[in-house]
């Protein structure tokens, strides 16, 4: 029997990733060439795009040039953390890799 969740996950993995053009966000806590890869979390009312995940250590939003998927590795330069994107109840979150 086919597991619908497995089928959905398989379809997501096969679909090409969306590509994002990263603009400046006003974030100024890393060297200029890295700034567009981060932005500040604006609090209640803010939401994450498919290429974004929130750092659990310092709460900065980490941005990627491509849509993020479970298993991706990203870096939070403002707090020096290495992170893995994981699927938690259908939501992508970042976990620290020590």
């Amino acid at each position: 029997m086919n597991d619908p969740l497995e089928s959905q996950r398989g379809a997501t993995e096969k679909r090409p990733r969306q590509v994002f053009e990263l603009d400046e966000t006003g974030f100024n806590e890393v060297p200029p060439r890295y700034r567009r890869f981060y932005r500040r979390w604006k609090g209640a009312g803010d939401s994450l795009a498919p290429n974004e995940v929130k750092c659990p250590v310092c709460k900065v939003v980490i941005r990627s040039r491509v849509e993020l998927r479970a298993g991706d590795r990203v870096y939070c330069m403002p707090c020096m953390s290495r992170l893995e994107v994981v699927d938690e109840n259908g939501e992508l979150v970042a976990k620290v890799l020590y």
């Binding site: 806590e29 250590v57 310092c58 900065v60 939070c76 403002p78 707090c79 020096m80 953390s81 290495r82 620290v96 020590y98």
Partner: peptide, 19 residues
């Protein structure tokens, strides 16, 4: 903005050491 680095250094260094 500075404290982010100090705090992140601590958690990541200690995390690696505890492993």
């Amino acid at each position: 903005s500075d404290e982010r680095r100090h705090m992140g250094f601590g958690e990541n260094d200690l995390g690696r050491r505890l492993i």
